[in-house]
Design a protein around this nucleic acid. Structure first.
Lengths: 206, 206
DNA sequence: GGGCTTTTGTGAAAGATTTCACAAATCTAG
DNA sequence: CTAGATTTGTGAAATCTTTCACAAAAGCCC
């Protein structure tokens, strides 16, 4: 498939959320202009974004809410489930697992690891926290597609390497480091420090 | 000041983190090439990013690590402290307040609010959880610059409006909604659903 | 000091993304 | 069925961002 800009994919995700709101309110159809104004963008942007994937609208009428929701879910790959290993049993990992949206989008946490002996063996949202020593054995017995890295910065790269060697296809990284992985592995880093600093910049420079 | 791209500011934040690592390792100077390769970008990009703010390097030598750290902290506005109100006393808020980087960057949480009677009155990281009913009184007595919105989606916009009316200058939003605010107020939304969906997209389309 | 090496700072070129603007569809009403 | 009103889909233009490429500066060595 032709290369799609990250910014476009992020907006598709936004449109999906807005469409679900329109659906709840009982709307049958929606125009690019309506989507745009709710989403803080322009109607031309909405139409261009969608046009990369096909033409889903009817001229003069707009888009069928239900159909567009279905199409966007399909484009974003939200029909399937992903098996997830959580690497690190701290606060953020815990908040993540309890976050409904995680499971709603098909992310199913099947194992959880930590180094802290105080945590190992504890029950944690229905799973038993395992030692990272058993990472290889466990992930070979029960493979996963996604690893969520929720460890201190200094442990993140080594654990990422081990996960990749075990066949993990994607890394969701919450550690404040730049991870190195082979080209075929997808990495998405969520870096709160960075968000705080851009906020600080915006507050300072006005 | 000339308008700086968001992507540039994000990279400055990244450079700062990398420089702090170089500093720990005792490096005196660093070249744009060294920064670039550790940060997954190009040396030209590093130099261009910095050039928007001045010329901090020495030709033939590179950048003084210490000086560049100081300059970047200044550019990003990290010298000062910000008073923060946390709106919502759930998991994410809790993880946030305990996150060292939050305080390290000068974000000082001075009050915390919730609607849940079971939470109100509880001690929470040294602060007492207050009812949102007392938001106005409390923030008038002890003004803050930043409000962190960690509430369900349906409550976020109304609370944002109340905060803005009370003089809040910036909103850090973790609710999965598009917030509307006056132009002079800065909003930064951290939307996990969106990150999950872009990851799902990347896994699906390859 | 002069020649060699390194590395910055920056215009210009290339590439990517967003906005414009309008023909083509489709609906509505009479 | 025709006229008028909407709204899509999309090339072309405008704008924004990244990369290129090279002169200028600075250190190093003999």
């Amino acid at each position: 498939m032709r290369k799609i800009a990250e910014s476009t994919v992020r907006r598709l995700s936004l449109y999906l959320r807005l469409l679900e709101e329109f659906e709840e309110q009982g709307a049958e159809t929606v125009s690019s202009e309506a989507l745009a104004s709710r989403g803080g963008t322009t109607s031309a942007q909405v139409r261009k974004d969608l046009s990369f994937f096909g033409s889903f609208g009817k001229r003069g009428l707009g888009y069928s809410v239900g159909e567009l929701v279905r199409r966007l879910r399909e484009i974003l790959g939200l029909g399937r489930t992903y098996r997830v290993a959580m690497i690190g049993a701290g606060k953020i990992g815990s908040a993540l697992v309890q976050y409904r949206g995680f499971r709603q989008r098909g992310f199913e946490v099947v194992s959880i690891f930590d180094v802290d002996p105080a945590k190992i063996g504890r029950s944690w949202n229905g799973l038993t926290v395992q030692s990272v020593v058993s990472l290889e054995g466990e992930l070979r017995a029960h493979p996963v597609e996604i690893a969520v890295i929720v460890t201190p910065a200094d442990a993140a790269q080594a654990l990422t390497g081990r996960c990749v060697a075990l066949g993990v296809k994607a890394i969701l990284n919450f550690a404040p480091v730049q991870l190195t992985v082979p080209d075929e592995v997808v990495v998405k880093t969520v870096n709160l420090a960075l968000e705080l600093e851009t906020l600080s910049y915006a507050l300072t420079n006005r």
